[in-house]
Every structure is written in structure tokens, then in C-alpha cells.
Design a binder for these strands. Sequence first.
DNA 1: CGAAAATTTGATCGAAGTCAATCATTGTGG
DNA 2: CCACAATGATTGACTTCGATCAAATTTTCG
Lengths: 193, 193
Amino acid sequence: MEIEKIIKNIETNYLALTNECRKDLQNASRILSLDKDTVIVKEGQFAHKVYFIAEGSARSYYLKDGRDITDWFAFENDFICSVNSFFLNTPSSLFIEVLEPSVLLEISRENVNLLSDKYTEFDRISKLIVTNTMLRLQERIVSIQFETALQKYENLLKTMPDITQRVNLTHIASFLGITLETLSRIRNPKNRI
Amino acid sequence: MEIEKIIKNIETNYLALTNECRKDLQNASRILSLDKDTVIVKEGQFAHKVYFIAEGSARSYYLKDGRDITDWFAFENDFICSVNSFFLNTPSSLFIEVLEPSVLLEISRENVNLLSDKYTEFDRISKLIVTNTMLRLQERIVSIQFETALQKYENLLKTMPDITQRVNLTHIASFLGITLETLSRIRNPKNRI
DNA sequence: CGAAAATTTGATCGAAGTCAATCATTGTGG
DNA sequence: CCACAATGATTGACTTCGATCAAATTTTCG
């Protein structure tokens, strides 16, 4: 996939850019074509890049008492980064890995800031992403706090219907904050009655 | 409390402003002196104001199956707004009420946007607030998902040590996603052993 | 094909929820 | 300024959802 096409996708999914901004973004970006299971960010690293998923999928995860907990999934046209490291310039508490063969667009924080300062449209896009993320986190808190395991799962399927075909259940379970066993039982209609 | 003092507090807690920006902010703001229990935002309203707490405290809450669930607490030098309504211009899903006699600075979204466009420092402050909120939500998800009721409570006390003196336990319990009864048992050292 | 990984199924346990009653605190009107 | 509602918090008995531990089964892939 060529960089022009990817940037066009960003524009259709977020906001249109001026020609000049588009050109600058192109020069500030790098395409990564990655195999399944490639880890692109490790815990402890300073992770000052953000990734746009052109093709494939990725997840961020952390280790809590040795257990691998998925924090976030990203699919086509989503952005993903190590939030604390990218925004606070601290060592990453997250890992990020690609879940399928994927094509990503990588942009550094430095370039994001430069482009945001130079182009209002770009600043709008970056604000939009942060705001949307904040709102999704808000909704997720409500979901985690007051829904049963089944409701959480059904909720997830509403926003990401094909996730079970693309991501293994272990990751989905940890994302939902339930065990793999519970998720398995929930998915079996016999156990619902 | 005078508006100059309040804006000075915003500056010391966030970022310094130029004289011109400070003056514009002053003209764009309004002071509210409110009694305990005053509801300043109701569900269903378009709530395009953000409030800075100069004195006192406030909470946002929503009704889930008729139950009053606290979504967020704000104390001195915090900002609070109905996130979905302010950022997406949708009817508020939240109520906001003052928990103590309070002094708030009210600024409209329109003015926030005007000031952000005009002054880079102001834009930085607004980005800072959104980013910090996002990071706090992220941490809260981890806390909700993997901690026991006791750990959640102790966690809350770390970030807001005087909360139990200022907010009643019903609100604290719903904020933590536990029942009032559980919170009460947790707080009694006899039940810990 | 066979080993490793992923998922399902079963049995048991425990943290926190629910329902209900009691106790404590606050605040208002007579 | 007390009395007595009203609100807020505690305690108790019981239940339940989902966790844990363990084993079996299915799928994936070299």
C-alpha cells in the first residue's frame, strides 16, 4: 500500500488536509509492513511514535502480576500508541503488538507537534482523536462497572463485530476484564438459558 | 473571590498566560457562587460550559436503571463539564451538582474555542486538560478492572485523601463501582483481619 | 502427523451483591 | 432548643456471578 492511499484514508476517516499539509505529513511518515505477532513497542521504552493502522490490527497490553492484559484494540483506520509514553514522555507501561500481517503508518510525536503547530486542520485531527479516545474510555468505564460479563461481551460485539474472527479469545477476555473460561461459557448459548 | 485571583490559580495550576489572553479570558468568564446541592447541569440539556472549581467541590453523575452513579469528582483547581455534551454537542447524559458551597468559573465552549484559536498558551492548557483526563480515565479502568473493593478504596484515598470528609459515602461507593454496604464493611478495620 | 496453542467443560470457592433491619447524624418546624 | 423526620451509615443473613484449579477437547501449524 502506498503512502498516498493511506493518507487519503486518514482524510476520509477524519478530516481533509490541504495539499501542503498532506505533503508535509507524507515526508514526516514512514510505512511499516509487519508480520503477525511483531512487537512494535516494549514496556520501559520511550515510545514517541503513533501508528495509524492502514491494514490489519494491533493491540496494546500490559503485564499485571505476570498476566498479559489487553488494554486496547486497533483495527483499520484506528490510531494506536503507548498513551502515557507518547503524551507524558515517560517510559511506556504498555507493549504494542500487531495481531495480523499489517501495514502501519508511523509518525513521531515531534512531527505530530510540528504539523499541529503549522496546520490548523492537522491540529483539529489530533484533538479529535484525543477527544474521541477520552469519550470511548468514559463509555468503557460504565461498561466495566455495571455490566455482567455477557453484557460486556455483547457490547464489544456491537462496536467490533468481527473481533472474534480476528483476535483470539484470550486477548478479548483480558480486554473485557473477565477470565478466558468465563468468556468461553458466555459464548456457549447452552449456558445462558 | 475575585476573578483575577481565580485566573491566577488556573495559571499556577496549569500554565501562565500572556496579559492579553488573561484579559480576554476574564471577559469570557463568569463567576458562580453556589449553595451546596445546586444542580448546574441536567441530563438532556446541551451543556456547552466548562467549570473551573475555585472553591468547593462538584460531581458529575448519571442515572443507570434509576440508580444515581457518580462519574467524576472535582475539587479546588479541577475542571468539570459534561464531557459528551461539551465535546460532541449532544444532549448531556450527565448531571453536575455542587457538593459544598462553591465558587466556580464558568466558560462557554465557544469562548474556549475562540481563546484556543487566538492564544497558543490557552490552546496548550485545553490540550493539557483533555490529555490528563484521558490518562486518568485509563488508570481508572485498570483500577476498576483488577482491584478488589478495598484496593479501589485505598487507591482513591491516595489521590483524594480528604474525600471522605467532604463527600458522602453513597457517592464514593457508586464512583468506585461498589455498593454502599461493601464500602461500609471495607472501612471497618474489624472486617479486614 | 504430532506437538503446541487455543478453547471448552467441570467442580469448587469466595468476594461482593441483595435484601432487610438497625443505628447515627443532620436539620427543620413547632 | 428540643423533637422527630429524613437522610446517611452500619450490620447481618443469604445468594450469586465469576474466579480458580484441573482436565479434556479442538484447532493450528511446522
